[in-house]
Structures are given as C-alpha cells and as structure tokens.
Amino acid sequence: MSAAHQSLLVPADTPVHHLAPQCKVAATALFVLAVAATPTGEYWPYLWYLLLLAAVAALARLPPLTLSRRLLVEVPFLLFVLALPIFDGPPSLTVLGVGLSVPGLHAATTIALKATFGLLATGILAATTPPPEIITGLERLRVPRVFTAVAAFMVRYTEVLAAELARMRIAAICRGGKARWLWQVRDVTAGLGALVVRSFERGERVYLAMVSRGYTGALPTALTGVAASRVAWAGALAMPALAAIGTVLAS
C-alpha cells in the first residue's frame, strides 16, 4: 500500500493511535451503520455525528484539511446526486428557473451527508491505523483466515506491483508508447499480462522464502496482536453508542 494508501496515515502519539485495531475497526463500522440508519429528512443528528467525529479527530490530533481532502473522491458521485432534485417527481419549487422537487432535495441531501460521514469515519481509521494493523484487527474480530491471509499477501505485494508498474510505464513512455484509444488496448493488456507474470514470479520467491522459514498460513501470535482490554473496548464503543443515541432519537 505505497503511495496511494500509506500516505493516509498521520503518525502521532495519541490514545486513538494506540488503541487496539480490532476496537477501532468495530467502532468505525458501528458508527457508519448508525449514521446510515438515520431517517431521511432529519438533519440535526448530523450535527451530533460531526461533533463526535470532531472530538475523535481532535483526540487523534488530525489536521482537518487532511481529512477533508479525502472527500474529493465523492465529487463524481455528488454530480449524480445533484440530478436527484431535478428528476425526482413533479417540481414543487423553482430556483433560478429550474424546477426542483422537495422529496428529491431531501433525498439528495441525505445521501450526500451519509456518504460524507462514511468517508470521514473511515478516514479517521485510515489516518490512525496502518494497513497491517487493520488486518490484525480483522483477524481478532474472527474474520475467516482466508480473508486475512489474502489481505496480508495483498499488502505485501502492492508495493512490489506498484514499483513494477511504474518501471514498465516509464519504459513504455520512453519507447513512445501512449495508450489512449481502444485500438491500442492490446499494448495495455499485453503489458498487464507481463506485469502479472513478472510480479507473480517475484511473489512466488517471496512465498517460498516465507515457507522455508516456517510460514503455515497464519502469522505468529506475536504479530497478530493481543486481546484488547475492557477499558479499550468501552472507550472505543462509546463513540458509536453515542452516535446511535442520536439515530434513535431522530427516528
């Protein structure tokens, strides 16, 4: 998880960073579920969720700009949401000559808000927890071994693959290769095939080295983390519990 993913981490020495990953993963998931269950047309709970997220972000000493930059991935989706008030049912009010429907406006606002809060919550998780720790956390949450083993290999190989891909792209550009149109797709896919084979042969060697050092499909317990204390669980789950109070009061 090089460039694209590692940069999400904001290293710091805070209770949120030190919290056991399984607690953080569970708390994030529950918080997002609480937000997603908020009924349409109620807006005050989002203020409450924002307050909770802001408290956690402040505790983790995350710069607000870093978190909000994450919201950029939402832009194409927001363009779609913008269309809702225009096409959703008969127009009941007119703004700047465009007929808008009130239910459509409510739906669009609610969808955009929920997606935004999902992004902010997972953003805090990603900013305070490195990917290998998240996999450890998932393992602790009894996620089947196949998933965590595949995920661990994925983390291991992403770096190799990204470097290999960059190398091959530079080589292609040097030779004047510039795949832009559909009829050049053969260059791209042949390149992809070569990339898979090159990376797999490297990955195979990595795997054989691991097996010869005693890898059996699971990491040693020293690396798979420890059980979280009750205090850690209570602290982590307080956040989604407070959010859920807002959700229940709104519905």
């Binding site: 595949v150 290999f153 797999f200 499909g217």
Partner: peptide, 9 residues
C-alpha cells in the same frame, strides 16, 4: 494463496 494475494494487489 500468493496468487490470490497478487491478484488482489
């Protein structure tokens, strides 16, 4: 297993 990890990556 490594092939699966590679495909995921």
């Amino acid at each position: 297993l490594p092939l699966a990890g590679l495909v995921a990556a």
